[in-house]
Amino acid sequence: MKKINLLQITLLILPWLTVPFLGRSSFKKYVPSAIFICTVTAALDLFGERKKWWRFYKGMSYVKSMNFFNWGPYFVSSLWMLKMTYGKFPLYIISNTILHICFIYLGGLTLLNRYKIASLVKLTKFQYLVIDFIRAIILYGFQCITNNTKKLSNE
C-alpha cells in the first residue's frame, strides 16, 4: 500500500477512535451539525476548486483526498468543539480561531501540501482563515437552530 493511501486511511479512522469518549448523548446531540457542516464544506470544496482557490489531489480510487480529511478530523473535531464549548459562544469563537490559526499557520496546510492532499492556489492563508471563521459561525448557528427546534418539539 502506498504511503499516501495509508496516511489518508489514518486521517479518516484515527479521529473516530476518540468518538466513544464524547458520550452517546453528546454524539446524538451534535452529529446533525457535524454532518451539516461537512456537507457544506464538501460543497465549498467543489466551488473553491472550480474557482482555483485550492487544489485537491486524487485520493484512493475515485475519492478525492479532501474527503478523507473532511469526514475524518474535520467531522470529529466539529463534534468535540461543540461538546466542549457549546453554550459559551465567546469561548467557542476563541478556541475555534486558535485551532484554525494553528492549522493554517503552524504546519497543517504545509502537511496537506507535502502529502498531496490539498494546497492553496489563488487563496492566501488569511483568506482561508476567514472562510474557516465563517464555517465556524455556520456550525454554531446550525447547532443553535437544532437545539431550538428540539426544544419547540418537546413543548
Rank of each mutant, 00 (worst) to 15 (best):
N67T: 12
S77E: 06
I98H: 04
L79S: 04
N67L: 15
S95T: 00
L111I: 10
I98V: 12
G108Y: 08
S65L: 02
L109N: 13
F103G: 15
L111P: 10
N96T: 03
S95D: 01
L82S: 06
F89G: 08
P90R: 06
Y92T: 08
C102I: 15
P90S: 11
F89M: 14
N113S: 10
L99E: 04
F75G: 06
F68P: 07
F103C: 14
L99W: 02
G72E: 03
G107F: 14
G87K: 11
T85K: 01
N113R: 13
K116D: 00
T85F: 01
G72P: 09
L109Q: 11
L106P: 11
S77G: 07
L79V: 09
L82D: 04
P73H: 07
F89T: 13
S95H: 03
T85V: 07
G107E: 14
L91M: 12
Y74K: 09
L79T: 04
I101A: 06
W80K: 05
L99Q: 05
L111K: 08
L91T: 02
L91G: 01
K88R: 12
I104P: 02
F103S: 14
K64N: 05
I98A: 07
V63R: 01
T97L: 07
L109F: 13
F103L: 14
F75C: 08
Y86F: 15
I93M: 07
G107Y: 14
L111D: 08
C102V: 15
M66H: 14
I101F: 07
F103N: 15
S78T: 06
K83G: 07
I93K: 00
W80A: 04
M84T: 12
I94P: 00
Y115F: 09
Y115N: 00
